[in-house]
Design a binder for these strands. Structure first.
Length: 734
DNA sequence: AGCACGCCGACT
DNA sequence: GTCGGCGTGCTC
């Protein structure tokens, strides 16, 4: 440790100086002096003065920087809190280096529970003494009866149990019948019981579960891809791995995409382990957040189910990580610290020397490749659970089976809906586009309605009589007259949205009960839950939905799925477009066929030869995955090269584009750097500023950061900011 | 990330 | 003449 000497009244008092990571984007830990008689080792959470305020930080490893002694300030408090363990500290360092973000910002994610660093207050409780009351009333008798088991009770708890008012207990306490005792705060969740309700597993499941249990029992780092079609019982299988880890007394983290963290999942866990896991997500109430954080750090909470940020919880003794739906793009965080929680989970597991399980029905290309190359253990669940059977999928070639003029449902799909209605079964129509129509134009002058802020098309929402920009949230009232030429009632809606599909379905099947589900639905999540329950009870015949219907929710009565436009999203410049489309459509069509009844899927497309469509129709994605892997290999995209994206933001779109062009032109100057062109999010409006994103392929992110700074300093002065984000690179961390 | 300092437009 | 916008810089 560095020593600082300070002259105080003629004497020399050396003070111990330690590095402290501050929740702020500084490149290094700051140096702070420890007050005399106080010690704090690496991992200890402390409070330090920073400018005019006090912040909390983590004492870091290594030597503190030697700084100007006049600037050196003292740690103001060492919290009574378990220190952040060594593997977690190495994890923070690793994520910082990998994502090119300052370590303090990464540490900040681990300290997201401001009031949790002080111990939870003890609970005031009462315990029966040997003293008996002078006069015994009926109420007092009931209280004594309930409290007679030797346990301590909270005042209100005992009053409630005995059916008396708290004043009865006050009276008894005054006479010394009860003595006050302090109890430790109650755990947020009960301890899970690994033997609570072991499931009866099917043949395929049993072997996979056995393999996972062995992996967990062996301990040590390993990564396993648990790959099984929808409905094959992946959850039951990884629950067995969890049971093994819990049995060994270690902690478990289950990562889920935010949207999958539903009551349904928690109930399933409860059914298996007799208690719910602790939850961790953005909606958690602050008080609860603190309790979960604290009890996780103390090792009291054994299982946490959480969204991606749960990866930064300070587990005392983490023994297993599960990443469910590992392909889900929601694992990517794209602000401040850019990371993919799935990949970082593998890193955390490696640094903690524990197993990690990645589960998905439609694994990402990266994970497939890692499994194929033997980096990950590969467990395959091939058959569907119980009577559930995958729907048989057929492509509908829209060139041959064109919908009627002004419509979007082909005769083939309409006939299938009709037959499904006749059998009194449910149909699901999927279209990943909210609103009525994605483009509105004037039939007289050709004027297109564009967003005044970001120049993308405005989407008509006919039900709300609004035009909305799905990029920046701008809305305006749908006008009657063209704002350009003034002609009345000559506006034409182009292309379909789910509202328009609902209109078409109503027209063809006026007696059918149609429900529209989308994320912008009036009434929010509460209304959505009600609608979902109604659907499950059979109170709808045709469900029309966006992306939202692909996730989590089960529709037990659904026997037909129609994909209205399977080509949507295939040509948006995203290098993962094909993969995403395949995953999305597999999940949507997987919603059907859980009834035991024969179910069907019809996929409308103009490109029936496209590898995605072929993979869906054949039910065998192997060829598609191989082809996609080859393509990426050729383009040096993940998983084969390090990929970074540069985000340029500027005040206007032309400005952003100018800078983007400049960067692309300058890229060849820098050896090893290749700019691949606008992709993934070609244009997005964030806080009123235009952003232009390029994917850059290069080996060393930090070099690239320097290169971009240099390049921009040579060119015209940039208005706006440049950020470099390193995207996935699963090969470099194993 | 916060928060202060500092330099140019519309206003009590 | 001030109040207030956000650009730049600093925090052990």
């Amino acid at each position: 440790m560095a020593k600082d000497s300070r002259q105080i009244e003629g004497g020399l008092f050396p003070r111990k100086v330690v590095p402290v990571l501050i929740p702020m984007p500084a490149e290094r830990a700051y140096s702070y002096a420890l007050p005399e008689g106080v010690d704090a080792g690496p991992g200890q959470i402390v409070q330090v003065p920073l400018g005019p305020r006090l912040v909390s930080g983590i004492v870091w490893d290594g030597e503190a920087d030697v700084i100007n002694p006049d600037k050196l300030r003292e740690i103001t408090q060492v919290f009574d809190c378990p220190p952040i363990v060594e593997p977690m500290r190495r994890f923070i360092d690793w994520v910082s280096a990998y994502t090119l973000s300052p370590p303090g910002l990464v540490a900040r994610m681990a300290l997201r529970a401001p009031a949790a660093f002080d111990p939870e207050p003890m609970i005031e409780a009462l315990r029966l003494t040997d003293v008996r009351p002078e006069r015994l009333t009926a109420a007092r008798e009931r209280v004594l009866e309930h409290a007679g088991n030797g346990l301590a009770w909270s005042k209100s708890g005992l009053a409630h149990a005995a059916g008396v008012t708290p004043s009865v207990i006050d009276g008894l306490a005054k006479q010394g019948v009860f003595e006050p005792v302090k109890l430790p705060p109650p755990p947020v969740v009960a301890a899970p019981d690994p033997d609570f309700s072991p499931p009866a597993l099917q043949a395929g499941q049993r072997e996979a579960a056995e393999a996972l249990r062995e992996t967990v029992a062996k301990a040590g780092f390993s990564a396993t891809l648990l790959d099984g079609v929808t409905g094959s019982g992946k959850t039951e299988v990884y629950f067995e791995a969890i049971a093994e880890a819990v049995q060994a007394g270690r902690q478990v983290l289950i990562l889920l995409p935010e949207i999958s963290l539903t009551a349904q999942f928690l109930d399933r866990f409860h059914a298996r382990f007799g208690t719910r896991p602790a939850e961790w997500h953005s909606e958690l109430a602050p008080r609860m957040r603190e309790k979960v954080w604290r009890q996780t750090a103390e090792g009291q909470v054994k299982v946490v189910a959480g969204a991606r940020s749960a990866l930064f919880l300070p587990f005392a003794d983490l023994g297993l990580i599960i990443v469910d739906e590992e392909h889900d793009p929601a694992y990517k965080q794209e602000d401040r610290v850019f990371y993919n929680a799935r990949d970082m989970a593998v890193v955390r597991a490696r640094l903690a020397n524990i197993p990690v399980v990645l589960a998905s029905a439609t694994p990402s290309i990266e994970s497939r490749v890692n499994a194929a190359q033997g980096r990950y253990q590969h467990l395959l669940l091939e058959s569907r659970y119980a009577e559930a059977e995958l729907p048989d999928l057929k492509l509908v070639d829209l060139r041959r089976h064109a919908p009627a003029r002004g419509g979007f449902l082909s005769p083939v799909l309409l006939k299938a809906i009709e037959e499904t209605l006749a059998r009194k079964e449910q149909s699901l129509l999927f279209l990943n586009r909210r609103g009525y129509a994605p483009l509105t134009l004037c039939r007289v002058c050709g004027h297109r309605f564009e967003c005044p802020q970001c120049s993308s098309w405005l989407v008509e929402h006919r039900f709300r009589e609004q035009l909305q920009c799905h990029h920046c949230g701008h809305t305006e009232r749908t006008p009657n007259a063209c704002p350009s030429c003034g002609t009345l009632d000559h506006l034409a809606a182009c292309g379909p949205g789910i509202e328009r599909i609902a209109e078409e379905a109503d027209r063809h099947f006026p007696d059918a009960r149609v429900i529209v589900l989308s994320s912008d639905m009036m009434g929010g999540t509460k209304r959505l839950r009600i609608e979902l329950e109604a659907i499950a009870k059979g109170e709808a015949d045709i469900v029309i939905g966006t992306q939202l219907v692909a996730k989590g929710h089960n529709f037990p009565l659904m026997t037909l799925v129609g994909v209205v436009d399977a080509d949507l999203g295939l040509s948006n410049g995203d290098p993962r477009a094909a993969e995403r489309t395949y995953q999305l459509l597999s999940q949507v069509t997987g919603r059907a066929g859980r009834t035991g009844r024969k179910s069907h899927g019809l996929i409308q497309t103009y490109q029936p030869q496209h590898p995605v469509m072929q993979a869906l129709a054949s039910g065998d994605p192997q060829a598609f995955y191989e082809r996609e892997t080859d393509e990426r290999n050729r383009a040096a995209l993940p998983p084969f090269g390090r990929l970074a994206s540069v985000i340029i933001s500027a005040a206007t779109r032309p400005e952003a584009e100018t800078h983007a062009r400049g960067l692309r032109a300058a890229a060849p100057v820098m050896p090893g750097i290749m700019v691949l062109g606008p992709a993934e999010a070609p244009l997005a409006l964030i806080r009123g500023r235009h952003r232009f994103r390029l994917l850059v392929h290069g080996e060393r992110g930090r070099d690239m950061q320097g290169f971009i700074r240099q390049m921009l300093s040579r060119g015209p002065k940039l208005r706006g900011s440049v950020q470099v984000q390193v995207d996935i690179d699963p090969q470099s961390f194993l």
